[in-house]
Every structure is written in structure tokens, then in C-alpha cells.
């Protein structure tokens, strides 16, 4: 399920025109074959039909509702997962005891392919929005825990000694020392968490109860054999995923520089 591009995002090659050769050729072949009747238009609909389908869905208002529902689900799940993730990660990073007892189990549970949680979560939470949000939160939580733990644990020793000299309280240690030192790592975790959350949102919409959402749109398109709708949905998924990744990367970059 996860196809996570590098968080920093690769730079497109300078010779853009060469990069355009393949997509343009593919699109031209697609358009030609569907126009000349070489391909079954049910499988490869002409491009303008997809555009028209997009326009129609947008004007009918369903597309916006679906998009909004998906984004809301994505963000509330991410918010929940990130909060739990930072808290758990901090505890695991600071407390040796918690680390020893919990980390092996966390690492074990992490091995279960994320989508494999869907049946159990559905059985535990039923058809409510809650089930979907919990699944998204679980997805977002995992990279946040790992990166927070790593960051908190890796506070530089000299800094800790400074803290000791200044007789920092536990809270001061946490707020002034460990968390700031861990910030870059936490931000990386949050960035990855955002990407995972978006993937999980799609997964939840595929496998859990029917509701508005881009994933639901794609599934409905498949059932109706509506290829334009499916392709439109895929396009939107890709674009939103890309935008989320870029935005998170930008924020991360800014925060670290400022930090």
C-alpha cells in the first residue's frame, strides 16, 4: 500500500522536454487508440470523457463532498495518531523500563501489514466514522512513535550535562532539552505520518462501511464499470498525496531552519 516517495521530493530532471516524451507519447497513443477504435473505450476512455466526467462530478457537487470527507477523515486521524505517537514515542525514548517492556511488542505489531488491521478494527468499532479515524490514526502513529523515540533518545550528551548543571527539573528536561533536540526527528515522523495517514484514508474507504470519500468514489466507479470515474479518482488521490507531501516537506524545512 505504501509507495512513499522520498520526503524531500526528487527534483525533476533539467531536460524537462525529454521527460515529456514518454507521457506525451502514451497520452497520444491512448487518445488515438480510443478514437480509432483500437482499444475498447470501456477500458481506455478518450481523455475528454475523463475531463467531462471530472467536470460533471465537480458541478454536481459530489466530488467536493467526497474530497472534503476524505480530508477531514485524514486530518482527524492524523491528529489523533500524531498526538498518541509523540506521547508514546517520548515515553519510550525517555524511560528505559517502558522501552524494554513495550518496544519489542511495538516492533512486532508494526510488522503486521497495516491493511490487515482493517477487519479487526471494523469488528471493534463497527460502521461509524470512528472506525475509519482509528485506522488512520494507527497508520499515522507508527512512524511518529519511531522517530520521536529515536529523536528524544538521541539528545546530545553535552546538552544533558548542561541541564544537570542547571539543575533542570524533569519537566524542564523534557520541554527545554529533549523535545527541542528531537524536533527535526519528530518532524520527519510527522511528515511520514501524514503520508501514511492519506494512504490509510484510502484504505479505510475501500474496506470499511460505505460513506462519502474519494476511495468510495473509486470503488463505486469500479462497480459501475465507470472507467472515467476510476481514473479521475486515481488522479485526485495522486495529486492530494503529492500536495500533502510537498506541503509537509515545506513546513518541515521552514521549521527546522527556524529552529
Amino acid at each position: 500500500m505504501t509507495d512513499v516517495a522520498a520526503p524531500n521530493g526528487p527534483r525533476i530532471a533539467p531536460s524537462v522536454h525529454r521527460g515529456l516524451v514518454l507521457p506525451v507519447a502514451l497520452l497520444a497513443a491512448w487518445e488515438l487508440s480510443s478514437r480509432l477504435g483500437l482499444a475498447d473505450p470501456r477500458f481506455l476512455p478518450p481523455l475528454e470523457i475523463i475531463a467531462r466526467s471530472g467536470w460533471h462530478e465537480m458541478m454536481e457537487g459530489r466530488l467536493w463532498g467526497d474530497l472534503l470527507a476524505s480530508l477531514r477523515r485524514d486530518l482527524s486521524g492524523f491528529g489523533l495518531g500524531a498526538t498518541i505517537g509523540i506521547a508514546l514515542g517520548t515515553v519510550l525514548g525517555l524511560s528505559r523500563l517502558a522501552d524494554r517492556i513495550l518496544t519489542p511488542w511495538f516492533n512486532g505489531l508494526k510488522q503486521i501489514a497495516l491493511v490487515a488491521w482493517i477487519p479487526l478494527i471494523s469488528m471493534w468499532f463497527g460502521f461509524d466514522e470512528a472506525a475509519k479515524v482509528v485506522f488512520v490514526a494507527l497508520a499515522a502513529c507508527i512512524p511518529v512513535v519511531l522517530n520521536t523515540q529515536e529523536g528524544v533518545r538521541a539528545a546530545p550528551l553535552p546538552l544533558i550535562e548542561v541541564g544537570r548543571t542547571l539543575r533542570f527539573s524533569r519537566t524542564q528536561f523534557l520541554l527545554r532539552l529533549h523535545l527541542p533536540a528531537a524536533l527535526p526527528s519528530i518532524l520527519t515522523g510527522l511528515h511520514l505520518g501524514l503520508i501514511y495517514a492519506w494512504l490509510a484514508t484510502v484504505g479505510a474507504e475501500y474496506f470499511m462501511a460505505v460513506g462519502p470519500g474519494i476511495g468510495g468514489l473509486i470503488i463505486a466507479g469500479r462497480e459501475r464499470f465507470d472507467m472515467p470515474l476510476v481514473l479521475l479518482g486515481i488522479l485526485i488521490l495522486g495529486c492530494i498525496g503529492f500536495a500533502i507531501d510537498r506541503m509537509a516537506g515545506w513546513i518541515e524545512h521552514r521549521l527546522i531552519r527556524w529552529h
Binding site: 509507495d3 531536460s15 507521457p23 475501500y206 486515481i234
Partner: peptide, 28 residues
């Protein structure tokens, strides 16, 4: 040369999660 032609394509491919391709491939 091959890179200039294929790399953007792969980046685009990787932007869309595998999960999203499944319904498309099911129709295909």
C-alpha cells in the same frame, strides 16, 4: 537519456499508492 525519459514517469507512478491502482487494474 533513458533517465530523462523514464524518471518523471516513475515519480508520477510512485505518487499514486498501489492501493489506488487496484480498482483500475480490476477493470482492466
Amino acid at each position: 537519456r533513458v533517465d530523462d525519459m523514464l524518471h518523471p514517469f516513475f515519480i508520477a507512478l510512485s505518487q499514486v499508492p498501489t492501493l489506488a491502482w487496484i480498482p483500475f487494474l480490476m477493470l482492466l
